[in-house]
């Protein structure tokens, strides 16, 4: 059962969800120089909304349409982001940067309890989707189809996001703003708009991550905080603000976690944090440092 291929697929599955979360975190930092501590809770929010929406629709819609319903989670997280940036973050840009970090910490506390308030203390599930895909056998292993779907979404998201940032006009504006906000502003880029768009996009990715994993893991309180810490590890390894870094960091963390669960379950998390600390020590800006 624990063949090499299964292990690799498990790692890729982890890496996929981690990338979805970490890429948003990294994108927001890259453009706005803000580390959004509430990011993990936007991921959790996406998961809750997706599970709730799937629960509502499950009896009326065919299971294949439920995959589209999942997207509601991602959109809801994006909407929250579009609301938060102009109201709560924008007033702080002229202050020392500590305040932005502190603000997102406050949002983390609030979001955590908002989810408890709305959906109660019990986990929500959306296992209808993962059940629907069943298991697939190939090359001598049997593997859950839904996990393969998650891996595919991760790959598509990575490619799509890369194309978006490096190929589109909006991507050019994002990168210009991230390199030099004043210069971009002088060149006629509407920095305010870029900020709200970048933040929204970051939250969208987080929400998508949450929506995608909810059929497997369910939506539980505290999942956001755990995810945030792992996303930190990913972006620290890969380099804050770098998409390639988020991808490579997610792969590294994914594989180490899989190994860890098998061989050093007790200290698996400690090992991950230590790797992050060591990377910071030898390459302060991460493996894929951008200035």
């Amino acid at each position: 059962m624990d063949t090499l291929l299964t292990q690799i697929l498990n790692s890729l599955f982890y890496a996929s969800t981690l990338f979805l979360i970490a890429s948003g975190l990294s994108l927001v930092y890259g453009v706005m120089r803000i580390v959004n501590m509430a990011h993990g809770n936007l991921y959790a929010f996406g998961a809750y909304v997706a599970a709730w929406a799937v629960g509502l629709a499950a009896s009326t819609l065919h299971w294949s349409l439920l995959f589209i319903v999942l997207l509601v989670g991602a959109l809801a997280a994006a909407a929250v982001g579009a609301l938060l940036e102009p109201t709560l973050l924008r007033p702080l840009y002229r202050r020392p940067e500590e305040y932005q970090l502190l603000m997102t910490f406050g949002l983390l506390l609030i979001l955590e309890d908002v989810m408890r308030l709305v959906w109660g203390p019990h986990p929500l599930t959306a296992s209808a989707l993962s059940d629907a895909l069943g298991s697939i056998s190939f090359m001598g292993v049997t593997y859950p189809g839904y996990n393969l779907f998650v891996i595919a979404v991760g790959v598509v998201a990575a490619v799509g996001l890369g194309a978006f940032v490096y190929r589109t006009r909006f991507g050019v504006m994002l990168r210009a703003t991230s390199q030099n906000m004043r210069m971009a502003s002088a060149l006629g880029i509407d920095v305010k708009r870029v900020y709200v768009q970048a933040f929204t996009l970051g939250c969208l990715m987080a929400g998508l991550g949450g929506a995608i994993v909810v059929p497997i893991q369910g939506a539980v309180l505290g999942m956001g905080i755990d995810a945030l810490i792992l996303a930190f590890v990913v972006v620290v390894i890969g380099g804050l603000g770098s998409l390639e870094g988020a991808a490579v960091g997610a792969l590294i963390v994914g594989f180490v976690r899989t190994l860890g669960i098998t061989y050093f379950a007790e200290v698996e998390l400690a090992v991950l944090y230590l790797i992050a600390a060591v990377v910071l020590f030898v390459r302060p800006a991460g493996l894929f440092a951008r200035a």
Partner: peptide
């Protein structure tokens, strides 16, 4: 060796090493 956000994340990561040890051992 670091300041600003890197200092913050590094202190966080190291504290979580201790946490996971307290939890798992």
């Amino acid at each position: 060796r670091y300041t600003r956000i890197f200092f913050g994340i590094l202190t966080l990561a190291l504290s979580q090493v201790l946490w996971s040890l307290a939890l798992k051992l």
